[in-house]
Amino acid sequence: MRAVDLHHGSSSETGHVRKVNEDAFLVAPPLFVVADGMGGHAGGDVASGIVIEEFARLSDEGYDSREGAEAVVATLTRCQVRIRDYATAQARAGHRLHAGTTVAVALLVEDERGPKWLLANLGDSRIYRLVDNELDQVSVDHSVVQELMDAGEITLAEAADHPERHVITRALGAALDSLEPDFFLLPLAAAERILLCTDGVTGMIDDATVGRILRQSDDPRDAADGLVQAALMAGGHDNATAVVVDVVGLVTDESFDFVRQRESLETKLGALP
């Protein structure tokens, strides 16, 4: 696959209410993941941690750039097995817990027309894109309120305060038997900036605020931190995590590697002398 110059930033905070950060994220260009664990300490944080471990393994071992969806499904399947095995072992030890997690994934793939973004999600962790300064939510929440909105039974304003707004209909978890991630394939030009975030961000700030922060922050690190800090200032009722990725362009130098790219980025942004 042709190398793509990517700049990125990430931020994650526990928030003002939760005692443990059950969110987890992975930045391993050209693979990015956000996971929002469910089930509390020793449940949700373990589940989200398993997701990050398995996708880090995918990054280390590599994947066929023309079979990205298959690689994602295989990785999610390994996550599911590990989460189920963990919950079973805990139950045998007398610890009843719920271990589950949402997942949002962005990775570069390639077809005959060149590199593209392959995006995938389970649950209500979201994927947005910014193109021509316009914010667009790519992923669709797997939640009760989303289904009610799709059916025309409630409005967007009513969804914000709905008593079942946190009920997820699809996720990784010990009680689930099948995986049904949604996939989206986008040309690089159609997604100049990608945002992966947990509902601790989008549950506290609206899309207008998300778009404003993404537009006003040229540095993706500032954008990610700005989103999380805005969520904290709005109440910080949940763990909040954001990963922002910018597509800078295609790399023509065949000797390009991502270690050198990171060093170059740090120099450009003033992190190195």
Results as ranks from 00 to 15, higher is better:
residue 90 Q to D: 09
residue 61 E to N: 13
residue 114 G to F: 05
residue 50 I to T: 12
residue 26 L to M: 06
residue 13 E to G: 01
residue 108 L to S: 06
residue 269 L to I: 09
residue 50 I to A: 07
residue 36 D to H: 05
residue 25 F to P: 03
residue 79 C to R: 06
residue 78 R to I: 08
residue 142 H to M: 05
residue 78 R to V: 06
residue 50 I to V: 15
residue 69 A to K: 08
residue 89 A to L: 14
residue 65 S to T: 13
residue 210 V to P: 02
residue 231 A to I: 01
residue 26 L to N: 08
residue 198 T to P: 06
residue 23 D to F: 11
residue 113 R to F: 15
residue 60 D to F: 06
residue 71 A to V: 01
residue 108 L to C: 02
residue 43 G to D: 07
residue 124 D to A: 03
residue 36 D to M: 09
residue 176 L to K: 14
residue 115 P to W: 06
residue 169 T to N: 10
residue 102 T to P: 03
residue 217 S to P: 00
residue 248 V to T: 07
residue 124 D to Y: 03
residue 217 S to D: 00
residue 35 A to Q: 01
residue 221 R to C: 00
residue 85 D to I: 01
residue 147 E to C: 12
residue 45 D to Y: 04
residue 147 E to M: 12
residue 222 D to R: 12
residue 44 G to K: 05
residue 169 T to Y: 10
residue 100 G to W: 02
residue 148 L to W: 09
residue 1 M to F: 10
residue 222 D to E: 14
residue 110 E to I: 00
residue 197 C to Y: 00
residue 230 A to D: 02
residue 232 L to V: 09
residue 261 Q to E: 15
residue 80 Q to L: 14
residue 66 R to F: 01
residue 168 I to P: 10
residue 202 T to V: 12
residue 149 M to E: 10
residue 229 Q to Y: 04
residue 221 R to I: 03
residue 19 K to Q: 14
residue 39 G to A: 05
residue 73 V to H: 03
residue 70 E to V: 14
residue 122 L to F: 04
residue 16 H to K: 15
residue 115 P to Y: 04
residue 61 E to S: 12
residue 195 L to S: 04
residue 217 S to R: 02
residue 125 S to V: 12
residue 181 P to C: 00
residue 208 A to S: 07
residue 17 V to A: 11
residue 21 N to W: 05
residue 243 V to A: 06
residue 116 K to L: 13
residue 224 A to T: 00
residue 34 V to N: 02
residue 191 A to C: 14
residue 221 R to Q: 14
residue 104 A to L: 00
residue 151 A to M: 14
residue 202 T to I: 08
residue 134 E to S: 11
residue 22 E to T: 01
residue 37 G to Y: 07
residue 162 H to L: 04
residue 142 H to N: 09
residue 148 L to R: 04
residue 161 D to V: 12
residue 249 G to R: 01
residue 79 C to E: 06
residue 271 A to L: 02
residue 5 D to T: 05
residue 89 A to T: 15
residue 154 I to W: 07
residue 100 G to D: 08
residue 243 V to H: 03
residue 148 L to V: 10
residue 44 G to W: 01
residue 82 R to P: 00
residue 181 P to S: 04
residue 98 H to M: 13
residue 86 Y to Q: 08
residue 245 V to A: 09
residue 185 L to V: 12
residue 62 G to F: 14
residue 7 H to T: 13
residue 78 R to M: 11
residue 187 P to H: 07
residue 214 L to Q: 01
residue 155 T to N: 07
residue 16 H to P: 01
residue 76 L to I: 10
